[in-house]
């Protein structure tokens, strides 16, 4: 190996180590912070401490944890379920059924991707207020169920769905909706798994829109609670880190459970 290629390899490794550090260190700091007092953290302590149990106890005293987690899980699971149902159905329909206006309608939908959510917040707020659904689970879930990105994702993946399977199912006597449920969904399960992870994380981590539509403490999700802990006059960072760890666990769990299917789905696999 020449000196130049050795040097290039060394520089590349250094860059990768730096990138890995930037990715992993905040995560480690969060875990270490959960075991330390606020003073230790602000004092610059990065090692594990012994204050985990007091931090957890304090968190459970201050926050109605079961209620908050129920809210978060309900919003994330229901949001994921309805978005998957509606977006996959739309993506399947756009790809399978031909019409003269199909591509124009789809183009229009894609164009809407360029409209930022911030621009839609006020009209949505006014609409939801008029509909009387503010401070409800429905208000958090509804704006995201027809996700244009997810419709696009499902349409692209449906291109890999063999048309002969649909023909065979039609010959076997299945109606169109039965083909979708009995054949399409099981065949495309990797695609669904990848979408499920993305949607669960998006819904679980949602902050801005829930902050706008949720008005009472008993409706708050974990992300809003974490944020409210940080707005105290003297924030207790140990407490905040415990809340962060608890808020992160479900997404990690979902990712590891569906990891294999996530990779398959991202590669567009029909298994």
């Amino acid at each position: 190996m020449s000196l130049t290629s050795k040097l290039t390899s060394l520089l590349m490794q250094a860059a990768l180590w730096l990138a890995a550090f930037i990715s992993v260190f905040p995560f480690y700091w969060m875990i270490a912070g959960a075991t330390n007092t606020a003073n230790d953290i602000t004092g610059g302590k990065f090692t594990l401490g012994s204050n985990l149990i007091p931090n957890i106890t304090k968190f459970f005293e201050l926050v109605d944890v079961p209620r908050i987690f129920f809210n978060s899980f309900f919003v994330a699971i229901a949001g994921t379920f309805f978005t998957l149902a509606i977006s996959s159905l739309a993506g399947y329909g756009f790809e399978i059924f031909r019409s003269k206006t199909r591509d124009r309608v789809f183009g229009g939908l894609l164009l809407m991707l360029s409209v930022p959510f911030a621009a839609m917040m006020i009209p949505l707020f006014v609409m939801f207020s008029a509909a009387g659904i503010m401070n409800t689970y429905l208000a958090i879930i509804l704006p995201g169920v027809a996700s244009i990105f997810m419709i696009f994702y499902f349409r692209q993946n449906t291109k890999a769905f063999p048309s002969e399977l649909r023909d065979a199912a039609r010959m076997d006597g299945l109606k169109e909706w039965q083909i979708f449920i009995k054949i399409y969904i099981p065949v495309m399960r990797s695609t669904y798994a990848a979408a499920m992870i993305i949607l669960f994380m998006t819904n679980w981590n949602a902050y801005l829109w829930p902050l706008i539509v949720l008005q009472t403490n008993e409706m708050k999700t974990i992300q809003l609670v974490v944020a409210s802990l940080a707005t105290a006059y003297t924030p207790d960072y140990g407490l905040i880190m415990v809340a962060n760890v608890l808020a992160t666990l479900p997404t990690i769990l979902v990712f590891f459970l569906l990891q294999r299917r996530f990779v398959e789905g991202m590669l567009g696999g029909v298994k």
Binding site: E164, D167, A169
Partner: peptide
């Protein structure tokens, strides 16, 4: 009907 790609439900 028997299809070219077999069309078996995977």
């Amino acid at each position: 009907m028997v299809f070219q790609s077999y069309a078996l439900y995977p």
